[in-house]
Simulated assay, not measured.
Amino acid sequence: MQFVRIEGVTIAYDVITPDPANPVLVLVNSLGTDARIWHFVVPKLAEDFTVVTYDKRGHGLSDLGNPPYRIEDHVADLAGLLDHLEFSDAIICGLSVGGLIAQGLYAQRPDLVRALVLADTAHKIGTAEMWDKRIAAIEDAGIAAILDDIMSRWFTAPFRSPENAAYGAYCNMLLRQPVSGYTGTCAAIRDADFTREAQAIAVPTLCIVGEQDGSTPPDLVRSLANLIPGAQFEVIEGAAHIPCAEAPAAFAAVVRSFIVNDVKD
């Protein structure tokens, strides 16, 4: 893990197989998680791509900054990281809020974006009332109060078996998440709307969703794909909102196929 200060905020990141001959693939994690959700995906992609992972502000080892956030704060962090690494023309793969960040990066810094993989996300996620209710519940009773509800959206019932050690670990990841980083990013999602910007995306785009996603269901992700000219849409069976953790081989295979077949040099 490496660290860089971007506009006063420390961002934790990693670069795997930094071969200048390889396309750059950036993986942007979801709300309440950190870069570890990509652990099983990275080895399946690192042979052919320079893979960048990082912790969003308010998550993992990165600084809190000044929550609540705007989606533009997260976008500026990613743009600053890519500028620091001197990477441009990258493939940006964003999961959930990471997909909003990817859309925002393309809108603000198209020079940094070669293609988009928008996973389990949308042009607008939820309503202001929904996000305000979640923020209030967490501020009142902590993240533990919403754990079971969130996990039922993140993972399928078989994965949520008490015997599955991985499931317990992902519960720990959410429970140990800084509350203000979580609620601050809830506010960023609440206020983000890329409906208009999505229609102007002009790079190859793949929209992926787990078939049992309870946070951004397949119909919602399909509506995003329908907004983006020429976008592809794929459903990953046997997975919910975090397919990179629940079905990493299938997730990596879909991403690899898209890049190899549809992202031109």
Rank of each mutant, 00 (worst) to 15 (best):
residue 212 Q to C: 11
residue 246 E to K: 01
residue 221 V to D: 01
residue 211 E to T: 12
residue 232 Q to P: 02
residue 230 G to L: 03
residue 245 A to G: 05
residue 208 I to C: 06
residue 222 R to L: 15
residue 250 A to C: 08
residue 252 A to W: 09
residue 207 C to K: 08
residue 219 D to R: 15
residue 222 R to G: 12
residue 222 R to D: 10
residue 203 V to L: 05
residue 253 A to L: 15
residue 228 I to C: 01
residue 219 D to P: 02
residue 205 T to P: 05
residue 230 G to Y: 05
residue 245 A to R: 11
residue 251 F to D: 06
residue 240 A to Y: 00
residue 221 V to Y: 02
residue 254 V to K: 15
residue 252 A to E: 10
residue 214 G to D: 02
residue 208 I to T: 08
residue 204 P to Y: 11
residue 212 Q to T: 11
residue 212 Q to I: 01
residue 248 P to A: 10
residue 252 A to Y: 06
residue 203 V to R: 14
residue 227 L to H: 10
residue 210 G to L: 03
residue 226 N to T: 12
residue 248 P to L: 09
residue 231 A to L: 05
residue 224 L to A: 04
residue 242 I to R: 02
residue 214 G to E: 09
residue 235 V to G: 01
residue 243 P to G: 05
residue 221 V to G: 04
residue 223 S to R: 11
residue 224 L to F: 08
residue 235 V to F: 12
residue 225 A to N: 01
residue 245 A to K: 02
residue 235 V to R: 11
residue 205 T to N: 04
residue 227 L to D: 08
residue 224 L to Y: 03
residue 221 V to A: 12
residue 246 E to L: 01
residue 253 A to F: 05
residue 244 C to H: 04
residue 224 L to N: 04
residue 244 C to F: 07
residue 240 A to P: 04
residue 240 A to I: 02
residue 205 T to L: 07
residue 254 V to R: 13
residue 234 E to F: 10
residue 234 E to Y: 05
residue 241 H to Q: 08
residue 210 G to S: 01
residue 243 P to E: 06
residue 217 P to F: 09
residue 219 D to L: 15
residue 228 I to Q: 10
residue 227 L to N: 10
residue 205 T to V: 08
residue 206 L to T: 06
residue 244 C to S: 13
residue 233 F to E: 10
residue 213 D to K: 01
residue 208 I to F: 02
residue 245 A to W: 03
residue 221 V to F: 04
residue 251 F to K: 11
residue 228 I to S: 04
residue 218 P to H: 09
residue 247 A to P: 00
residue 243 P to K: 03
residue 240 A to D: 03
residue 206 L to I: 12
residue 229 P to E: 12
residue 203 V to M: 14
residue 240 A to E: 01
residue 215 S to R: 15
residue 231 A to W: 03
residue 243 P to M: 10
residue 230 G to E: 08
residue 209 V to H: 05
residue 214 G to V: 07
residue 232 Q to R: 13
residue 254 V to C: 12
residue 247 A to C: 13
residue 223 S to D: 09
residue 231 A to R: 04
residue 254 V to D: 00
residue 218 P to V: 04
residue 227 L to M: 13
residue 202 A to E: 14
residue 226 N to M: 13
residue 213 D to H: 03
residue 204 P to A: 07
residue 241 H to Y: 01
residue 229 P to L: 10
residue 220 L to R: 14
residue 243 P to C: 03
residue 223 S to T: 08
residue 203 V to K: 12
residue 204 P to N: 14
residue 206 L to V: 02
